[in-house]
């Protein structure tokens, strides 16, 4: 499988990590840093909006729409050139990956779950990291790169 880009969003929709893999050949445009923040914020809000658009027949009346959005929130965006997958962890961290067409949902989910475990190991256990701030841990970047090449 080929991962084109990876985004990590904190629980309030702020971009804390962004990386393009093979930026010269993967077909994903290089954006300005401001545009990356807009992209992250847009995805964060769309994630919540589309959860509220669930057809009424699909949820019981008592279950309100502000509940657990890991089940009802945006999960996949399919476009002509790539697929985008969103994986929200229990703590509200969103892991977003842009992958080539044809990559299965299972493969993408496994990749993002692995990113989550790398995040727990090399970001959360880093005593110098402040919660919800941009990730500037070299070890994390190295491991993510290795993971993207391996998967």
């Amino acid at each position: 499988m080929k991962v084109l880009s990876l985004y990590l969003l904190n629980k309030s929709g702020g971009l804390i990590y962004q990386r393009d893999f093979n930026p010269e050949s993967n077909g994903i445009n290089k954006l300005s840093s401001n545009d990356y923040l807009i992209t992250a914020g847009t995805l964060h809000s769309i994630h919540a909006i589309v959860a509220g658009l669930t057809p009424p027949v699909l949820y019981p009346i008592q279950e309100n729409q502000t509940g657990n959005q890991n089940q009802t929130g945006l999960f996949q965006v399919e476009t002509e050139k790539f697929n985008l997958f969103i994986y929200q962890t229990l703590t509200g961290l969103k892991i977003i990956s842009i992958v080539q067409k044809g990559v299965s949902q299972e493969t993408a989910t496994r990749f993002m779950a692995n990113v989550h475990s790398i995040y727990s190991d090399y970001v959360m256990k880093n005593p110098f990291y402040t919660l919800d701030m941009p990730i500037k841990c070299q070890l994390f970047s190295n491991k993510v790169l290795l993971l993207s090449e391996a998967s």
Partner: peptide, 8 residues
């Protein structure tokens, strides 16, 4: 854009 999908 072709489609989008949620859990539901």
């Amino acid at each position: 854009l072709q489609s989008f999908r949620t859990g539901k």
